[in-house]
């Protein structure tokens, strides 16, 4: 207990209304409330945000970069999912 290190938290900041929260880094804090207060001091000293999320780092599950080929290849090959795949006759507007 005496020397237990505070847990690690991932910090996400919404820079202004209308935008997504974006990962900015991490910090250590004893609990979620302290993590938010610390995130305010560490990551928003110059009005960088209007909203903060903190997530305990051990609750983040990540894909394995080694699997990238098999995970994303199926979408790479489906070029017909992009509008540029289709031919539009001259003279057609707003499509």
């Amino acid at each position: 207990m005496a020397n237990k290190e505070w847990p690690l938290w991932e910090v996400f900041i919404r820079s202004k209304q209308g935008l997504n929260h974006k990962h900015v880094g991490s910090l250590r804090a004893a609990d979620a409330d302290m993590a938010i207060e610390n995130a305010r001091d560490v990551y928003t000293r110059r009005s960088e945000g209007v909203s903060i999320w903190v997530v305990a780092s051990n609750n983040v599950f990540a894909s394995n970069p080694g699997d990238a080929d098999s995970l994303y290849e199926p979408s790479d090959s489906k070029i017909y999912r992009h509008p540029t795949f289709y031919e539009v006759p001259d003279g057609i507007e707003h499509m």
Binding site: M1, A2, K4, W6, A30, D31, M34
Partner: peptide, 16 residues
């Protein structure tokens, strides 16, 4: 600062 970090841990645990 050790006692502060320790107290924060104890407080977090109690609240949990």
């Amino acid at each position: 600062g050790a006692w502060v970090r320790e107290a924060a841990n104890a407080y977090a645990e109690k609240r949990n």
